[in-house]
Design a binder for these strands. Structure first.
Length: 745
DNA sequence: CAGTGAGCGAGCTTCCGCTTGACTT
């Protein structure tokens, strides 16, 4: 008997649905998109009503052949791709490629549960062409932007660069954050922090108000010293005790972005690693007695919803394990949608709450267990009762002003029984009475500086992009690989730092194509896509409206933007071959000096990345004249991954290299040889003993020819000034607040 | 805490969004 063919996107989903549907159905996966614009050319003809040239994706060919074969013996076709714009388009592309002759039904569901699938089968529909058009508009627009702007960059900066609706905004965020950090001016402020002694015990308080009026904001030490003296002599009396009860609500269950954030914070996983481990959990893990089973629902999602079945199961589990009072009076609502969310899937939750992480710990790797544990507990906690917190505020009257002490007590743990909030700091105040006189046990004036914003991590970049509705769950991790691969950013200590070319490209795009790299470009595009999906507008006029002015602007900029002004910098050097001025250029492999007479004169010189002084540069040029110790050949200055060095010109025949030695003229305290400047593998400067590897003495900061008066170890020149390399001794200097902040950052 | 390298300017580069598998070292 002929079967009914069901096509979904993911093979793991196909497996689960296959079990629900029984033998009348064959379920197969498309493995995502099956047809797309060609890779090597634009594939769009704006002059012919934006005619598109779709081609089957190379990877899809085998699955397409199999689907065609299956169709021959099938009576009906069910297109069960995801319930979103992309899913609708995949369904349409499938019909275009397979050209099925039998009845076609489009079915959708938000959750992979038996009732949801049975219900979907009862309500088939046809493909929604308006939604397909919305996807095509998205696809065509992204292609036009990416495949038109990237070549513009090849022409005006250098080859291999890229630009796009999503990646360029991600780079822009990172570039602008770096500039904020660079321009940051720390502001000084002071607080008076006290420990007060009462009959019932000690508690912490701070001076909150001077007199009875203004909120305390003191910017210099003089003011605070006056208050400190006043306070030290003052009588202290408890004026008022207030307490208030509040609730602490659990977090929503995890979605892709928050999974990546929490896994980074708690487990120090990269976004890529998080997604790989989650994929394993989704596809199924061998669990004793149960065989291979999927542990979690789909991991690329933007919806906080959970299926009713799952919620019921979790609630039963909560009641059974912790008691009914751990269930909330009213269900917790996580209604705040992600901007531009498509909500085709559930939140990330365990497929079966009864599979407790600790029960299967022995059958999972440490990474798989840890991630499953996070997913399981956050999903369960999201359905638990809020925690109850009692906040007590005590005001203490003094001659200097009002001191405030605060207590925060957990009166009911609720969901925190499962996921304790590490950020929360609970403190209990002693029993106090109004009018009670307390005494001062300790009083410190504490200096504070405002801090610059931090560089983006993978997790915080994803959060920022998601907040602005830019990028999708399936692309968060790849976006970050792309901007690293293209040389726009580097990752140092898990934080993004922009490269020089990133600043150049962003300035160029912001100046000449401000609309495209505007933070609201995606949101505005989404509005237009919604219009298409709702039938308010047609595909072609929307594309026309974008492309006509864009194409005009582009051809204008092709002519007017001057490449030289972007990648060339004048110098006062002259070309030794032809006498023309030498310019500093930025190329694919970094900066280099070039004769301005190029292409007639091809003279180049390496650009020394390290910040050498003029004297040091002279010394290096002397040293390079010495011949190779191994083969007697000529030596040359080379720029390597880790900095500048000297190498034999007979490379690769002779591989002799010599490090450039910048001395400190400070002897090594352990062996007496000179300490010299070097670079670590990551390009960071440090000072090591020239006797390496016999002597492994090394310092992060420039050594000074003096000993610490406290511990007699070597003093070094830290950013904040001279200090001991070993103990906390610091030479008193007229220290600027900026240097303190720079050190702390 | 300790390594290094061609090239670059003119040529095959590039987008975003779905989904996983693996020509073999």
């Amino acid at each position: 008997m002929p079967k009914k063919l069901v096509i979904v996107e993911s093979p793991a989903k196909a497996k689960t649905i296959g079990q629900y549907l029984g033998t009348d159905f064959t379920v197969r996966a498309s493995y995502g998109h099956v047809r797309d614009l060609p890779l090597k050319k634009l594939g769009i003809d704006p002059a012919k009503h934006f005619a598109v040239d779709y081609v089957p994706i190379a990877k899809s060919k085998t699955i397409l052949t199999e689907l065609k074969t299956l169709l021959k013996t099938s009576s009906e076709l069910y297109l069960a791709t995801d319930f979103d714009r992309e899913g609708e388009a995949i369904a349409w592309h499938l019909t275009e490629l397979l050209k099925p002759k039998m009845p076609i039904h489009r079915i959708t569901f938000h959750e992979i549960t038996k009732p949801a699938i049975e219900n979907a089968l009862k309500h088939p529909r046809t493909i929604d062409n308006k939604l397909v058009d919305a996807q095509q508009a998205r696809r065509i627009l992204d292609r036009l932007v990416g495949y038109k702007l990237s070549p513009f960059l090849w022409k005006k900066v250098y080859r291999g660069l890229s630009a796009g609706r999503v990646q360029s905004v991600a780079v822009r965020l990172i570039v602008e954050r770096e500039r904020e950090i660079k321009d940051f001016k720390a502001e000084e402020s002071w607080t008076l922090d006290a420990i007060l002694k009462s009959k019932g015990g000690d508690f912490a308080a701070y001076l909150a108000k001077v007199g009875t009026t203004a909120k305390l904001e003191l910017s210099n030490q003089k003011e605070i010293d006056v208050l400190k003296k006043k306070l030290e002599k003052s009588k202290l009396e408890v004026e008022k005790i207030d307490s208030a009860d509040s609730q602490l609500k659990p977090q929503a269950p995890l979605i892709t972005s928050t999974l990546q954030q929490v896994a980074a914070r708690v487990l120090h996983f990269s976004a890529k690693k998080t997604m790989k481990i989650a994929q394993d959990l989704y596809e199924g893990v061998d669990v004793e007695c149960k065989g291979s089973i999927a542990l979690i629902t789909y991991m690329r999602t933007d919806s906080y919803q959970m299926s009713e079945i799952a919620k019921k199961q979790a609630e039963n589990l909560i009641a059974k394990n912790y008691g009914a009072k751990y269930l909330p009076d009213r269900p917790n609502l996580f209604s705040k949608k992600v901007r531009g969310a498509q909500e085709a899937h559930e939140a990330i939750r365990p497929t079966d709450f009864s599979i407790r992480p600790d029960e299967i710990k022995g059958q999972l790797t440490k990474d798989h267990f840890n991630l499953y544990h996070l997913i399981w507990s956050q999903a369960l906690a999201s359905l638990m009762a809020p925690a109850q917190v009692k906040t007590t505020t005590v005001s203490v009257k003094s001659d200097a002003g009002i001191l405030i002490g605060r207590g925060r007590e957990l009166t009911f743990d609720g969901f925190m029984r499962l996921v304790p909030d590490v950020e929360e700091n609970f403190v209990q105040l002693p029993k106090l009475a109004e009018k009670e006189v307390v005494t001062l046990k300790k009083l410190d004036s504490v200096q504070h500086f405002t801090e610059p914003p931090g560089r983006y991590s993978e997790a915080s970049l994803v959060r920022e992009l998601e907040k602005r509705g830019i990028g999708r769950p399936s692309t968060y991790a790849p976006i970050m690989s792309t901007i690293v691969d293209r040389g726009y950013v580097t990752k140092l200590a898990s934080r993004f730092t922009p490269t020089e070319v990133a600043g150049i490209v962003i300035d160029l795009l912001v100046e000449h194509f401000p609309d495209i790299v505007d933070y609201n470009f995606t949101a505005e595009m989404e509005d237009k896509l919604d219009d298409i999906a709702e039938g308010k507008r047609e595909l072609e006029p929307v594309l026309e409206e974008f492309y006509t002015p864009f194409a005009k602007l582009l051809s204008e900029k092709e002519k007017t933007v001057d490449k030289k002004a972007i990648v060339e910098e004048a110098t006062d050097k002259k070309c030794p071959d032809c006498g023309k001025p030498i310019v500093l250029k930025l190329g694919r492999y970094g900066k280099f000096y070039s004769c301005s007479g190029f292409p007639e004169c091809k003279h180049t010189e390496p650009y020394l990345d390290d910040k050498f002084t003029a004297d040091e540069e002279k010394e290096i040029k002397e040293e390079v004249k010495e011949l190779c110790e191994k083969c007697g050949g000529k030596m040359a200055i080379k720029q390597g991954r880790f900095g500048t060095f000297l190498a034999c010109t007979n490379y690769p025949k002779c591989k002799f290299t010599k490090a450039i030695v910048i001395g400190s003229s400070v002897p090594c305290p352990n062996c007496g040889k000179e300490l010299i400047r070097r670079n670590t593998r990551r390009g960071k400067v440090f000072w090591g003993c020239s006797g390496y590897p016999d002597c492994k003495t090394a310092y992060w900061d420039e050594p000074l020819a003096e000993k610490c008066p406290k511990c007699s170890n070597l003093m070094v020149n830290k950013k904040s000034g001279p200090a001991c390399s070993q103990c906390d001794f610091k030479k008193e200097t007229s220290e600027s607040p900026e240097s303190v902040v720079a050190k702390e950052a």
